[in-house]
Amino acid sequence: MTERTMTKADLVTSILLIVFSAAVFLISASMPTMAEQNRNPLAAPGIVPGFIGVVLFLLGLAMLIRSVRRGAPAFFAQDRGKPSEVDRSSWGRIALTVGLCLLYALLLGRVWFPLLTFLFVFVFVTAFEYDRKAPAAGQWKVPLFAAILAACTAASVYLVFQYLFLVNLP
């Protein structure tokens, strides 16, 4: 990340942090003091989260002031409409990784564990190793090895956890 994008990101995060910390403080302040149960109000559950909310608010405020001083609002105005500077291929790889992993986590418990694990490893390896620009004929090994690795992973994780560690997998 360049210093320019970092300053812009700081402005956005500081605003989010201020909103978040204010919410934390308000929720903490509305917590019961337990005094009606004859408990000491000095030990109210809201005291510590309230304190954390105040500190986070101050830290967010410090970052807001700093990013404004460094010219973040001006950067936003200048960069409007300009194409973003992020590198496309690395974003693609991040999206693919996160997407596949999220899909796996969401399907967990709905699909039989060994099958889901096999499919995940197979798709993950193939997606990253298969070169769409190269001719398909020379790449028959990629899905084959992916399938072997996937089968080994699924089988060994399933057997080890189910029978050795006695964990009931989802």
Binding site: T117, F120, V121, F124, L149, T153, V157, L169
Partner: peptide
Amino acid sequence: MPVIFILCVV
């Protein structure tokens, strides 16, 4: 990495 991810989940 996919194998490590499976271990993270399990």
